[in-house]
């Protein structure tokens, strides 16, 4: 399951209204993703849209795009993580399609499209990590760090106190934010208090 803030902006460049809106509708039905389709009816002005809106994913119809357009788009000062997917409305050569990060076909099911997105966006961590890390349960170390954060200690102070590197503290903090889906320190304070990890007196 993706975290709430993991919104993916998807720019769909496709001249057919039906294909464009149809793909938008399918994308909005994929579980586990928050996708924001943005539609444009062609590849004209695409360069400008890519630099302005910096989408995470670009879907284009190869019928209206040459290989040099593709190479050019990859070189733009847009989103460096941007993936480019072909919306293949006809038969194309494998060598052409291989230049894209993924290919969505006309007869793909929603499930197949989800699998293609998973291939592009699946978290890189190993399955072992995943199992140990899943769920919202904080480890004892994470609770310890959370309490210190809430009491107003800096990463450096926490590192010294717990004999950790600052880098490790930052990693723990990132994991805490991800597990709880709370990112601001004042938000974490409310969490810690409501869940009795700290007392009111602790940080007055």
């Amino acid at each position: 399951m993706k975290a709430e803030e993991n919104l993916l902006k998807v720019l769909i460049a496709e001249p057919s209204d039906i294909l464009r809106s149809g793909l938008s509708a399918v994308l909005n039905r994929i579980p586990g993703y928050r996708l924001q389709p943005i539609e444009t009816n062609g590849t004209e002005g695409l360069e400008h849209l890519l630099t302005l809106h910096k989408p995470d994913l670009l879907v284009v119809n190869p019928a209206f795009w040459s290989v040099s357009d593709l190479e050019h788009a990859r070189a733009l000062p847009a989103n460096p993580e941007m993936k480019i997917v072909a919306l293949a409305s006809a038969a194309y050569s494998d060598s052409l399609l291989a230049r894209y990060d993924e290919v969505i076909g006309m007869h793909d099911s929603t499930e197949q499209i989800k699998q293609r997105l998973d291939r592009l966006y699946a978290p890189p961590e190993s399955p072992a990590d995943d199992a140990a890390d899943s769920g919202e349960q904080l480890s004892d170390r994470e609770k310890e760090i959370l309490v210190l954060v809430v009491k107003g200690h800096t990463n450096k102070e926490i590192a010294q106190q717990l004999y950790l590197s600052t880098h490790t503290v930052i990693t723990h903090r990132r994991n805490i934010a991800r597990k709880l889906e709370i990112h601001s320190t004042s938000g974490l304070t409310v969490y810690a208090l409501v869940n009795k990890l700290v007392e009111l007196e602790d940080f007055k």
Binding site: I182, H183, S184, V190
Partner: peptide, 20 residues
């Protein structure tokens, strides 16, 4: 804009997921 949205999400998560 993202930062503003983020704090709103924090508040929502606290209330939906953690408020006793």
């Amino acid at each position: 804009h993202n930062q503003i949205d983020q704090k709103m999400l924090d508040l929502k998560n606290i209330l939906i997921k953690y408020y006793p």
